[in-house]
Design a protein around this nucleic acid. Sequence first.
DNA 1: CGCGTTTGACCTGCGC
DNA 2: GCGCAGGTCAAACGCG
Length: 481
Amino acid sequence: MENMKEMSLFRKIFEQEETKKLIGEEEEEDVHVQAEFQKEDQLNSTKAKVVEIREENERLKLVLARMVKDYESLHTDFLNILQQEEAKKSKDTSAITHQENEEESELVSLSLGRSANYSNEANKKKYEKKNSNLSTSHGKEGLALRLDCRFELNSTESEKTPSSENTFEEEVKEDEPTDQICPPSKILKTMKSDQDEEVLQQAQLKKARVSVRARCATPTMNDGCQWRKYGQKIAKGNPCPRAYYRCTVSSNCPVKKQVQRWAEDMSILITTYEGSHNHPLPISATAMASTTSAAASMLQCRSSTSESVPGTSVLSAANTANGLNFTFSETTRPHQLYFPINSSISNSNSHPTVVLDLTAPNTSSYFNRFSSAPRNNSSSTCLNFSSPSNPKFQSALAAAISSCIGNGGSKAQQGESSGLDMKWGNSNFPIKTAADSSSIFLNKVPSPTLQQPVSIFPLNSLPFSTQKSALGSPYDVKDHV
DNA sequence: CGCGTTTGACCTGCGC
DNA sequence: GCGCAGGTCAAACGCG
């Protein structure tokens, strides 16, 4: 009996174990099935995504086609206008152009990527011819630097001067002498007849400063030039020392810069440039040099008007529906406006300063905040550079890029470049590449809701690329996947 | 050893 | 004229 009981017990235990095994196997099968279901889900979702992306791609292609079509029609209109203009010009400017050609041979041309946005092949050839003349006559390298100074003045000043839209048309007319155009070299040339005024002018240029505010983790911004530090000082009201640098590309180059962190936000680096380079620049340095020259010229031009007041001017870039507005404001009390009252960067009235603020997320509102307040002796002027081919526009953008990408440090300070190619639309700002051969593109996104005036995208993550097409549209679009 | 940076002294301009 | 602050000089120092 006992054996029988034991046998039955063993049998029960055996059956239970068998049952457990079966349950385990079933569970494993369930897991497998679930995994397969999950895989199928993933596959389906991936397929759905691919379909979405394809649809998005199609939409973008349609948009692209529409934009190209629009551009072509505009381009055709423009060419027609251009032909009419040239027909007009050819009648009465043959004598003037001869004179201008003689002048041009003496110009130091400061151009930042101007060469690219040719409205047509004729202009391109004309420009190339100019540059070749310059380079051959001076025996310099191919680097041509052009510095034009012109303003479209809104508000009160625009009423005094004939309105000139900053469109491609302005580009074409760049050789025409107008009241608004004040190329520094030409100014200087006319000043030769009047020695005193020339001295005054040079003094003004010498004192004009360009202050660039940008977020920068490194000790200095990499602007492509070679600098030697010659001093450091703790300025009043700012715990951060101010460093003084001299340009060492040429032994007698008068350009200096001051570098200091902003007391209120240590991540913001304030670099103040003074003077103009008297030597050929490395390509990577033309961006900032052009900015400083342009800004200095702006000050000079402004100071030549009766309304101008000494002080600090602020150049802001703002995004609008039509493009980008550059806002130029002036005030006699720069410290209270743009820097803490005990500002670290000197802006005495003997040093009129253009502040290029690349830190504010929306510089237009930034500017409005200041300009809206009633203030004695302060004026603001809006400079509309809707054309991306405007040299000052490019200069400022290039400076923005220089600031944003500056991987300065001691190496950069010694003139080693950042390794980036900058391109604006059809204009290139090649910066020699060292460590990193990647490129970035400025992206002019026609969206009024965009917070940043300018968006910068790495080449490999371009939503829109402004790479040049044969027609030179600033809105060429790449497939976005 | 050469070159760049640091740092205290000195110069200069401006406001009171 | 004096004091203050910005700017520059130049000897000392450090690094490669």
